[in-house]
Design a binder for these strands. Structure first.
Length: 201
DNA sequence: CGCCCGATCTGCT
DNA sequence: GCAGATCGGGCGG
């Protein structure tokens, strides 16, 4: 066990941190049931100056307030009324940066992930995409604002064979509304991995 | 208080 | 390729 420490999440360069999260292992233990996957796709959301961020312009509400906490907490919210999306809050207190986890390669508890997804045959879309992976990992709003060094949801160091995977950067997905920030290449993924939500762009 | 729409996924065409 | 699902947040009145 090599859980990432509190200090890892205090980095205030959210793009650097989004890249560093690739290859690391996300775990949840829900009702005693362990599931885990390797992070293969992330997106950086750069706080108050990023038009695609929920904290753009300093917006501070019941939903977004956790983004302003110290790095190392979860930010889970409901999107389109259906999907829960999981983010890692980063940077020191008052700097509302976050990294959206968009793709995961299943590692542990795959049978349970399939059951949660209602799948009888394992296919890459089990955890390709932020809504899909949250469902597979059992992540919902009850896991919002959790300490990522705790016992319910946490991230561990990458296995050695994942530290040299090739990384690609491209525009973020589904943020056309962010106007001149929509094309910033703040999405990162492992080249060729099956569990990346969209292979191109 | 009411209206609009979203960091998406699925299934049908 | 595209519409529908589904509901809470955010903002204007």
């Amino acid at each position: 066990m090599s859980k990432l420490p509190f200090s890892f999440y205090q980095n205030d360069d959210v793009n650097d941190l989004a890249v560093q999260l690739l290859g690391k292992r996300l775990f949840t233990r829900i009702d005693g049931q362990l599931t885990a996957g390797i992070i293969v796709e992330t997106e950086a959301y750069k706080g108050v100056e990023d038009k695609a961020s929920h904290a753009y312009g300093g917006r501070y509400t019941d939903r977004t307030k956790v983004m302003y906490e110290n790095g190392g907490l979860s930010y889970v919210y409901l999107c389109y009324g259906i999907h829960h999306l999981f983010n890692v809050v980063t940077a020191p207190k008052e700097t509302p940066h976050a990294v959206l986890i968009r793709g995961l390669e299943p590692l542990t508890g795959v049978d349970l992930m399939m059951e949660r997804r209602g799948m009888s045959v394992l296919k890459p879309n089990i955890t390709a995409g932020p809504g899909a992976l949250a469902k597979a990992m059992g992540i919902d709003r009850l896991l919002n604002a959790k300490d990522l060094t705790g016992e319910e949801i946490w991230i561990e160091e990458a296995a050695s064979d994942w530290q040299s995977a090739e990384i690609v950067a491209g525009p973020r997905i589904g943020v056309d509304y962010a106007a001149d920030h929509a094309l910033l290449p703040w999405r990162y993924y492992l080249k060729g991995n099956k569990y990346v939500s969209k292979p191109n762009s």
